[in-house]
């Protein structure tokens, strides 16, 4: 029981310690405006990781999220000057379709999701290149102000992207904790055969989890594009590792069955604070992935009861 409780609270404690450590270096760190900026900067990562949480809770993986985010930014950037706000649902639909495709490939052909999503990632990446004509696509400022104000604007002194993140946090948490779908995701991750034997259509559960993962990755891409004022086929490069790390660092088990969107929210904040901490200490941006990789391994080591895992594949 002790171990369980520690696991639940450890991520929050780690976050607190990190924040405290940095604020010793820099008193200005705890200023409300600074905290708001940091939270805002975390939102794209959180959005991507929030959908991924459902997939990881199934005991599966989705390696296509960064490619989907990049593609979505391209779709949005190309269409927004032509069709206006419709570009956003278009981009989200593209992400959802990619997720659906991954799910169908893995459930119908019985291929491990590690492979199916890696393959779909390649397809989606190329699609993004083709769609954007391999270039970064600028979003005109007028279109941005007109259609993307809900991301780039500010409400009640808080940036739109934070509101988007908070809405996602609440909606997805409710979905996971309160809906039959959420419970079945947990059940599939914990003991899939028993869920199948209870007459549940498990393939459908997996399908919706992947659609959700693709959709949220696309939303992350849209928010990223809006913030930067452009879409690009490589926009979300180097987001995959931090996104998986955010889910796992938050305390969602990589083996499935245990986790929550709240934990991923904390996990994403930890990743962001670590990133800032590294800048303080003077670690090159290019070396940061080393730290994320190490963090991921450490988090899996802590959250998984490895004494019960007899073999590692």
């Amino acid at each position: 029981m002790n171990r369980f409780d520690l696991q639940t609270w450890l991520p929050a404690i780690v976050l607190g310690v990190l924040v405290a450590a940095i604020s010793v270096y820099d008193r200005g760190f705890l200023a409300p405006s600074n905290l708001i900026t940091i939270t805002g900067d975390t939102m794209t990562l959180f959005l991507m990781a929030s959908g991924l949480t459902f997939v990881i809770m199934l005991g599966s993986i989705d390696l296509s999220v960064q490619a989907i985010a990049s593609m979505a930014s391209c779709i949005m950037a190309v269409y927004i000057s032509r069709y206006g706000i419709v570009a956003v649902p278009f981009a989200l639909l593209g992400g959802a379709l990619a997720g659906a495709f991954s799910a169908i490939v893995s459930t119908r052909m019985r291929i491990p999701t590690f492979i199916s999503t890696l393959a779909v990632s390649g397809v989606v990446l190329s699609f993004g290149y083709w769609f954007s004509d391999t270039r970064s696509v600028n979003i005109p400022a007028a279109d941005r102000d007109m259609w993307l104000f809900w991301i780039t604007g500010s409400f009640a002194g808080i940036p739109g992207e934070i509101w988007v993140g908070l809405v996602a946090l609440l909606v997805l948490s409710a979905l996971l904790q309160l809906s039959p779908f959420g419970r079945l995701v947990r059940g599939v991750g914990a003991q899939e055969q028993a869920v199948v034997a209870s007459g549940i259509n498990v393939d459908r559960v997996k399908f919706f989890a992947y659609v959700l993962s693709g959709f949220m990755a696309a939303l992350a891409g849209v928010v990223m594009g809006a913030r930067l004022g452009s879409g690009s086929p490589t926009l979300a490069n180097e987001f995959l590792l931090p996104a998986i790390a955010a889910v796992v660092v938050g305390g969602t088990a990589i083996t499935g069955g245990v986790g929550s969107v709240w934990r991923t929210f904390i996990g994403a904040l930890i990743i962001q604070v670590v990133r800032i901490g590294m800048t303080f200490v003077g670690i090159s941006v290019f070396a940061q992935q080393i730290v994320f990789g190490a963090l991921l391994v450490a988090a899996v080591a802590i959250t998984m009861d490895r004494s019960k895992v007899l073999v590692v594949k």
Binding site: G187, A190, Q193, A194, V195, A197, I200, V258
Partner: peptide, 23 residues
């Protein structure tokens, strides 16, 4: 393996086949 979801609670297991009826 097929009878129960071990980490699920007693009530979660009992309602599993009829979950939609409870929602």
């Amino acid at each position: 393996v097929e009878g129960l979801v071990g980490p699920f609670s007693v009530s979660e297991n009992m309602t599993l086949p009829a979950l939609s009826r409870f929602a």
